[in-house]
């Protein structure tokens, strides 16, 4: 028996958003009497962290602390339209809508502050900690709380904003396929190291070294979650998963988490990932969608590493021990040792 080691590379790009019918999302923002801001959406958090990242984007644009932002989602009676959470569109589309809404609300907030401070609104800045002051003169300022109170009870102003992001519909030209389906592209490269058991065909992924280009990481820890979880799913797709283990034969479809194979906590690979950032010109603070892409590059990188290890090119997913072993047997038949 031998454990054959190999290394494989793959690089990919991934579109942010997918637009064949117009791809909008909206956001509404308003301040409470006490200077909290409510971002109202009908957007869905699947676990990727939308509620966190959107609050960060809103806080950044409003110039207030993250803690002062509340995300109110998702109720179609109150939340404005969102196309949905898919196509790596959430952070990009909703983030952009939130920035637009937050700018409008910020303008009102600064105007109220200017009135209270008897200065020109154009001279005001926010410190991100809950205060608004004259640029260069931190003492000449007012708290966001007081601005909100004044807006409500003195001036009769609503500190609010409306935002929408729309990628207009692109209809492909039937003859050539000319189209504009996406907003930007994120990128990834994986270098996989594997070990192949030459008697059983079992593949173990030893290590994935990943480079990810994400536009800008709104929250690096959450980007890291997507990267690690996505790369795990990549390993899972490469070696384990299917609802039809003998496709196109329909038999033996798994019905539970025992039969539906995915790597467990004892089957993990070492992972080393680096993020690089090339902000997207149309992304919120440059962010691109990365949630989907993270699963993609590990799959071919593993397939290529398996070939490197043992000379078996498996061209169908998942790469089961059986497929590898049949490949090894075929090599042995051609070239007996």
């Amino acid at each position: 028996m031998a454990k054959l080691k190999g290394r494989g590379v793959a690089a990919v790009n991934y579109p942010t958003g997918m637009n064949l019918g117009g791809d909008p999302s909206q956001a509404l923002i308003h301040a409470t009497t006490t200077g909290s801001f409510v971002v109202t959406l009908s957007s869905v958090d699947l676990g990727q962290g939308l509620k966190t990242v959107i609050a960060q984007i809103a806080a950044e644009t409003l110039g207030i602390p993250y803690d002062s932002v509340m995300i109110d989602t998702a109720d179609t009676d109150t939340g404005p339209h969102c196309m949905g959470t898919f196509a790596s569109r959430g952070t990009h589309r909703i983030g952009n809508a939130v920035i637009m809404a937050a700018r409008e609300a910020r303008e009102v907030m600064l105007n109220v502050a200017a009135t209270e401070l008897e200065v020109d609104a154009a001279d005001l800045v926010t410190d991100g900690k809950g205060r608004i002051h004259v640029n260069g003169a931190p003492d000449k300022g007012i708290g966001v709380l007081d601005v909100a109170l004044a807006a409500h009870f003195k001036h009769g102003n609503t500190i609010s904003g409306r935002g929408i992001f729309l990628k207009p519909k692109s209809t492909p030209v039937p003859e050539t396929g000319e189209m504009d389906p996406d907003s930007c592209q994120a990128h990834a490269c994986t270098i996989a190291e594997v070990e192949v058991d030459d008697e059983t065909g079992v593949v173990r992924v030893l290590k994935l070294t990943n480079g990810y280009e994400v536009g800008r990481a709104m929250n690096p820890a959450l980007a890291h979650q997507q990267i690690v979880g996505g790369a795990w799913m990549g390993i899972s797709h490469a070696l384990y998963e299917t609802t039809e283990p003998y496709y196109p034969d329909r038999a033996h479809g798994p019905l539970d988490f025992s039969e539906y194979l995915m790597p467990g906590p004892a089957d993990l690979a070492e992972m080393e990932s680096v993020i690089i950032e090339r902000p997207a010109s149309n992304g919120p603070y440059g962010a691109k969608g990365i949630g989907e892409m993270t699963a993609n590059s590990p799959i071919p990188a593993i397939a290529n590493a398996i070939f490197d290890a043992c000379g078996v090119r498996v061209t169908s997913l998942p790469i089961t021990p059986e497929k590898v072993l049949r490949g090894l047997d075929a090599l042995q038949a051609v070239n007996p040792v």
């Binding site: 979880g229 906590p265 993990l268």
Partner: peptide
């Protein structure tokens, strides 16, 4: 730790952060 959670499925994280 890995053994203790080997009956618990997580589809998001890749388990590392949980361990």
């Amino acid at each position: 730790v890995i053994r203790a959670i080997s009956g618990n499925v997580c589809r998001c994280t890749g388990y590392e952060s949980i361990v």
